[in-house]
Design a protein around this nucleic acid. Structure first.
Lengths: 137, 137
DNA sequence: ACGTTAAATCGGAATGATTCTTAAAATTAA
DNA sequence: TTAATTTTAAGAATCATTCCGATTTAACGT
């Protein structure tokens, strides 16, 4: 997925191409970081002095719905990054300082450390969501 | 870990025993569910009409710091449950409908479904946090 | 039991991220 | 170009959570 494909995806679904959407998408395309709405806002507002937060939030939600961005919640804030489509199922290491990510191709923690030499691991989260047998009935 | 042990842990660290703390802990001890601050508030306010949210939040944070409760963030809200101490490292299945949890003793998703017959799995999260090599320097 | 003192609680105000609202402006399709 | 639709700006509203000043309570020594 790149900016061009993302724009095509939007157009195909009847959404319009705008400068701000392009710039937002370019931001994500240029980095493998998870970004918050504020991160995006701060970087765009120098080009768009009157930029509104609403524009950022609306488009982030749109991009997520389209599958262009993927979202995770970290310490109470939503963080977004370009979807890693086409790959096998994988997870991410997320740097809590700079937001940079690294793909983790295997799923378990076991035997994982060898893929993360040089990283300082402070924690991890693995949770499964759904409905329990009681609630399924 | 039970209510008594939790209270002892508090006292040992110079915190006081109060009715509200006991009742909060009892709530968690009585269920294997993740509860939000609001869940706790709603259940306690019928016994303590003048109960303040601040009391709930302050004590939840205290319990988490003491290692009595463990916390996870789910759709923008903090959810707490009694810490599963003494066990081997494990994860939880969390029912999005009732909050009930089930221990998952293994870590990978691979070969996990056999432990979850009857469950309707809608998603899972596995993320590793820390500092990347750049930020470690 | 009583008084002291630090800690806990209360009630409400403040915060911060996110969403909603309204009217104006911009874009697309015909 | 025009009409219909979408997007935008600006600010108000919302929701969970935290902060604050004043009051109450638990723990401890007398």
């Amino acid at each position: 997925m790149n900016v061009h494909e993302a724009i095509q995806c939007l157009k195909k679904n009847g959404f319009k191409q705008t400068d701000k959407r392009e710039d937002m998408l370019q931001l994500f395309a240029d980095s493998d970081k998870y970004l918050t709405a504020k991160d995006v806002f701060d970087q765009l507002k120098e080009y768009y002095p009157g930029l509104s937060f609403d524009t950022i939030y609306r488009n982030l939600a749109l991009f997520e719905n389209m599958g262009i961005l993927e979202m995770t919640e970290l310490s109470g804030e939503k963080h977004f990054r370009f979807t890693c489509a086409g790959h096998q199922h994988h997870h991410h290491f997320i740097c809590l300082e700079c937001g940079k990510t690294k793909e983790i191709d295997s799923c378990p923690m076991d035997g994982l450390m060898e893929n993360l030499k040089g990283y300082d691991i402070s924690g991890h989260k693995f949770e499964i969501y759904g409905r329990c047998p009681n609630c399924v009935e």
